[in-house]
Design a protein around this nucleic acid. Structure first.
Lengths: 299, 299
DNA sequence: GAGACATGTTCGATTTCCTCGAATGTAGTG
DNA sequence: CACTACATTCGAGGAAATCGAACATGTCTC
């Protein structure tokens, strides 16, 4: 099993690129005989002639041309690999873990992840879509590097990120709409409310601020929307998640006479602001930017 | 500029795969200290720890996991590269040059090329769509490895490949159709015939067997069809190229009272049957197979 | 066409660095 | 507390890369 060295391919490439052994030798800071030796050994190992003499020069053979083309890719990959390693050496994380509350606008999250992945293509992202204490728990247990949540975490410093506006919605045919009048909180208590389950393992706390008599609890906000569109109740939901459903008339805001909109400020919290690596910082920046752009352009 | 060797990555992979230095050492037929040295040098060169001690074993660090994943791809690519070289060493051509007469059914050619490219993904194909002596000329000048042509080449041995059936066609509104009767050759002579130009550089010879008074010569058969569909003349064309046009009614066979169909046997000719490499032979086989399948399935 | 030049090639000496076995250290195990 | 199994360190040996010098071969110039 003969093994050709990367530097052998490299030297072959140098000879071809610089047009000859002597010129290449200068460029690579080696002696011409070294290059000659390396290339000939390569040819011997492969059993294929890659260079052929033409006059007092050498040229690639047909086979050599083909092999070198692929070898260059190999060299690029190797260089890229070491480049990744060097960034890792500078403290770049191999993986970052995000705990993002489901309240956070999905399109802003998508934009942030997209921008991040182009800037840091080799950093894996673990995204946890959390609810309430679920995210806080992950942060406190050291399982998440970055948290976006509506709840503050004691002992952690957060910065305000974006404020999510909540509205109460239901299917257009829902009984609350059929009343045909302004509603107050007591009206809502009479009907089934859909709330999202706290994703924390330990002590958990319910989403939704109203003590509805009937209450269904689901794990994901999208599930909740799906059930609303099937007219299975009403719910308080972030405006940003309702764009399509409202526009298409599948859902309709409830006509509350007061307190129609509730606002929850989301915070961006680092596990350890000072010790966080460049990828975590970049992701935090992307999250900030994406909500800013989202406010400026979309809403 | 530190350069990590392929074998260093290889040794790291071995250590990880076999779960430890000593086990890996046996598998790779090296001493444990060799592996240790190689891995530690790698870590030093990259400035990143890839293995971490856990108990009396070692495990990949997060960074190591990420780097090794990419390194494995690199190793695969390197192995693949040498594999290609070994086939080249066995006589596999880096490139084959085909001279295929335009009469050859396009779908059969496409099938053959497709099958060939999966079997020999690294062999480049140069396809020349020739006419009459053009292909023969390429063969005799040593520019083509394989020829498919209706003309024989003196001094070369050919094998019958497929017989192409020619019919005379014109636009449905063409004057020849308006006559509303069986036609003989003298009728055809009165109208403009489209012929395809011989692609030979040297002595060339016209396609089309009739001495029409008016004659337009084009370079490609498809051009001819396009002009026919614009009712610019009539032409003798291979049946297989007319499928769509006839079915859609854009062209219509001329009602010749005799000699309605002309048949031209195409031959498959090697430049040098004995010295041809495996790729050329395989391509020849694919061409044979594809016309056989074409007859069985299509027509 | 003869010399000068530039280039690839071969050869032997030198040095680098890869490889190995023995010794050492350390964490689990009875 | 010995014992095992493993990683690790060290120094010696050797294989292989590197180099400079001599050689061969082709082009260019006069």
């Amino acid at each position: 099993m003969s093994r050709v060295t990367l530097s052998q391919w490299q030297m072959l490439a140098a000879v071809v690129d610089h047009g000859g052994f002597s010129r290449a030798a200068e460029a690579v800071h080696k002696s011409p005989s070294t290059l000659n030796h390396a290339v000939h050994k390569l040819e011997e190992q492969l059993g294929v002639a890659v260079l052929e003499p033409v006059g007092r020069q050498v040229r690639l053979t047909e086979a050599g041309e083909m092999l070198l083309r692929r070898a260059r890719q190999l060299l690029d990959n190797a260089a890229s690999l070491e480049d990744v390693a060097s960034r890792l050496a500078e403290g770049l994380e191999a993986e970052i873990v995000l705990a993002i509350d489901q309240l956070f606008p999905a399109d802003a999250l998508a934009r942030a992840l997209d921008a991040f992945s182009t800037a840091f293509p080799y950093v894996r992202v673990q995204l946890h879509e959390t609810v309430l204490n679920g995210g806080v728990e992950m942060l406190k247990d050291g399982e998440a590097d970055l948290l976006v949540s509506g709840l503050g975490a004691h002992g952690f410093l957060g910065e305000p990120l974006v404020t999510v506006r909540f509205i109460a919605v239901a299917h257009p045919d829902h009984e609350l709409h059929r009343l045909g009048r302004g509603l107050d909180l007591r009206d809502l208590e009479q009907h089934r409310q859909l709330v999202v389950r706290d994703s924390a393992q330990g002590r958990s706390q319910d989403s939704g601020w109203l003590k509805a008599e009937q209450r269904w609890t689901v794990s994901h906000l999208d599930t909740s929307i799906g059930m609303l569109e099937r007219n299975l109740g009403f719910a308080w939901l972030p405006e940003t998640r309702l764009g399509d459903s409202l526009a298409a008339g599948r859902l309709k805001p409830l006509p509350l006479s007061a307190g129609r909109v509730r606002e929850i400020p989301l915070q961006l919290i680092h596990r350890d602001q000072d010790r966080s690596g460049p990828a975590t910082r970049a992701m935090a920046r992307q999250l900030r930017d994406s909500v800013r752009r989202g406010v400026g352009g979309g809403a």
